[in-house]
Simulated scan of single mutants.
Amino acid sequence: MNGEQRTVAVVGATGSIGASALDVIARHPARLRASVLAAGSNVAALLQLCAIHRPRHAVIASEAAYAALRDGLRDAGLDTQAHCGDAALEALVSGDECDTVVAAIVGAAGLPSTLAAARAGKRILLANKESLVLAGELLMAAAHAGGATIVPVDSEHNAIFQCLPDAHAHAGLKRIILTASGGPFRGRTRASLADVSVEQAVAHPKWSMGPKISVDSATLMNKGLEVIEAHHLFGVGRDRLDVLVHPQSLVHSLVEFVDGSTLAQLGLPDMRTALAVGLAWPERIASGVSGLDLIAQGGRLDFEPPDLDAFPCLRLAYAALDAGGTATAVLNAANEVAVSAFLQRRIGFLAIPALVEHTLAALPATPATSLAALYEADREARRIATVAIADKAIHA
């Protein structure tokens, strides 16, 4: 950073990752400034953040909420300019108002602004899975063409980023190993999972997350999506991407090299570490996260292979990665439909991978040549999965 103040657009500012990013930014007022804050529809929360962080610009996705944002900023006596809609956000993240973008909008809605930032050559702290799972080929091509730097914020990918700092490391890379907590059903057989409840599936043993990501952790689909992300982020083929179950969740990923060395990144599971890495890299700054006391954490680190029979979602993610093109978009869409149906108690837990497998078989992969092609694959996958649920065609 060399003493220069970095200007940061926090896209998805009112969510948990946005809050963590703003916490780190506020610790370094001379070096970091939140210049743009963007949110979906929560005007009250966005106004509160504007009062604290004083950005130059605030963007609300909902046009219906624009007047409330504009008037709220004026009534609070803030100089922050109000904007609304995707076009305004894309213009701000690709213009001179920021050099860094924290991309933390959930779902496919985050894709256009992330692509705009990539084309404009920004540093992107990527916390949006869909950008890579749905459109990884397009995003990485845009980043390469625009000269953008992508620093992943997921703890696993950020760990790999820290262990692969330069081209020399990549040249000697043998394989990448992502770690998984194993979720609430680690050690269970496939047969024993037939009757698990929604409450059991969302009860993660290590931390509290939203219901969707909690179920993805329970099925190991979350780790499958992360394998796909790692493929795009680090240009590594499926044959060099492995997963180990590590219940302590202190080793976030490992990188093995051809000389027999293996590097691992360890730390407490707090997103502020990864965000601080992204905001200051290659320098290190305080994140507010304490150091790791291995003795206090139990003094042991355990590892075991994932059970692909009990948790076939990980196998399906590998298969989609092998198929390429639109297959990963189909996988993601079918999984979202299946998890939603499970949370609504319309299907059982084991029907989630069954529905994903059914949808992948029904919708063969085609080249991912454009966002339009990927959105069409996403829509068709959701239709196929929804029909299968309605027709009770899935039996797990």
Rank of each mutant, 00 (worst) to 15 (best):
N2M: 14
G15E: 07
S16P: 02
I17L: 15
G18Q: 03
V24L: 05
A26V: 04
P29I: 09
R31Y: 04
L32G: 09
R33K: 06
V36M: 02
L37T: 05
A44F: 13
L47H: 00
L47D: 04
Q48K: 15
A51Q: 14
P55I: 02
S62D: 15
A68D: 15
R70Q: 15
A82P: 12
D96P: 02
C98R: 08
V102W: 06
I105P: 05
L111W: 10
P112F: 00
K122C: 05
N128V: 08
N128D: 00
E130C: 08
L132F: 10
A135M: 14
G136F: 01
E137K: 04
L139K: 10
A143R: 01
A145K: 13
A145H: 14
D154S: 00
I160G: 08
A169S: 10
L173F: 06
K174A: 15
K174P: 05
L178F: 11
A180N: 04
F185T: 02
G187V: 07
R188S: 15
S192Y: 07
S192F: 12
A194F: 04
E199N: 10
Q200T: 05
Q200N: 06
H204E: 09
S208V: 00
A218F: 08
T219V: 02
H232D: 12
G235L: 05
G235S: 05
V236W: 09
P247N: 11
P247D: 01
P247V: 07
P247T: 11
S249N: 00
V251S: 11
E256Q: 15
E256W: 02
T262P: 08
A264C: 06
G267P: 08
T273W: 09
A274D: 03
A274L: 07
A274I: 04
L275F: 11
L275K: 09
G278S: 14
G288V: 06
F303D: 03
P306L: 06
C313H: 00
A317G: 15
Y318W: 00
A319Q: 15
A320P: 04
A327V: 03
N335C: 02
Q344S: 11
R345K: 12
F349K: 10
F349P: 15
A351K: 10
P353D: 10
H358E: 03
T359V: 11
A361Q: 14
P364F: 12
T369W: 05
A372D: 15
A377Y: 06
I384D: 05
A385R: 02
A390Y: 11
